[in-house]
Design a protein around this nucleic acid. Structure first.
Lengths: 183, 183
DNA sequence: TTGTACATGTAATTGGTTACATGATTAC
DNA sequence: GTAATCATGTAACCAATTACATGTACAA
């Protein structure tokens, strides 16, 4: 039976926290930005990898400012609503360095809630099951195809990760489909 | 630049909901169980794949009972605190069938927040970076090793999925490490 | 008698999303 | 004039976790 890696010892400071903060800090490290700008950047350049909503970005920036990780100044252009431009502080840089070194060597596997239905495949008539799995395979294939559409990212580590994971998923579903006959 | 699959159309009933319910319903389909028992089962047999806490299970069962998906009866043994044994209802079975058919063909890639730090590798001196990546590689290798420890699951689809994903992760990190020299 | 396993639940908190509320600027 | 884009923020809500609160049975 499957064993948990429990009682493994440390239990430490809840692993896995702070990636969003790390991400925002890291982006602000390149150049200061206001919330909308940051959010736009996330949507246009990183939406494939991370899904951070506008409200989340604003809230996070607010929190980080309270903690002193970032500072903000108002910028007025004409008589539009002013922008709050955020910059990383020295303290923020320290936090960034710490978070980076904590997060990089860690690996906690992602959760795959999408796999739940696979547990109950035998509740379906074989024909229908085959059909549904075919659909899943097509979904994955399409995502792999989408990847080819922006090859400008090829070679980027996160892009490669995406590709490798999708290929593993495809292989897996194909295995499932292949195993169907011999049942 | 990376493109989102936005405006793709449907937008429908928020995809990705209900897997936990599907899981619990599916397990109750095999045999009726009380909360503690269900939770134990999740911990001892499925902890590797899904992480559902006790409180969550209890709450979920409560909710599902309110919705009529499961029914419960009290069972008294001696004079201990009584158990509430849950069974799936006909309505629950209908929901199960629906959720199963919705969830199986879907594929929405998991989120990998653990990859955030990879974006900022260049903020680290090469030696340290190499060291941290080596650590990550070891973490993954160990997880793969852990897998071998319970080979009784080998061949189980979810087990295979785990293995394939971990292998992809390993390959990826090794790629990162390999690319370090040529920088 | 002390700790662990069995057994259930609620309350407080966290983290994030959706929806709301506001308003100026620019392109059609 | 009206829609899209730029710009900020709050409030309500939801899902899930942690911490709390309670109590029996049994083994060391």
């Amino acid at each position: 039976m499957i064993l948990t890696e429990k009682g493994a010892g440390t239990e430490g400071q809840k692993s896995g926290a702070g990636e969003r903060e790390l991400l925002l800090l890291g982006l602000l490290r390149n150049r200061e930005m206001h919330g909308y700008q940051l959010s736009e950047f996330l949507e246009t350049h990183l939406a494939m990898f991370f899904d951070i909503k506008k409200a989340t970005a604003y809230n996070l920036l607010g929190k980080m400012e309270k903690r002193g990780w970032v500072s903000s100044r108002e910028e007025q252009e004409g008589r539009r609503p002013p922008k709050r431009v955020f910059a990383i502080t020295d303290e923020g840089e320290t936090v960034f360095q710490r978070l980076l070194r904590t997060a990089l060597p860690e690996f906690r596997g992602a959760a795959f809630p999408g796999n739940v239905p696979v547990l109950f495949m035998d509740a379906l008539p074989k024909d229908e099951l085959e059909d549904l799995l075919d659909q899943r395979r097509e979904t994955i294939r399409q995502k792999i195809g989408d990847l080819q559409a922006h090859l400008d990212h090829a070679g980027h580590p996160l892009f490669d990760h995406h590709r490798l994971i999708l290929e593993a998923e495809l292989k897996w579903v194909e295995g499932l489909i292949g195993g169907l006959g011999s049942k």
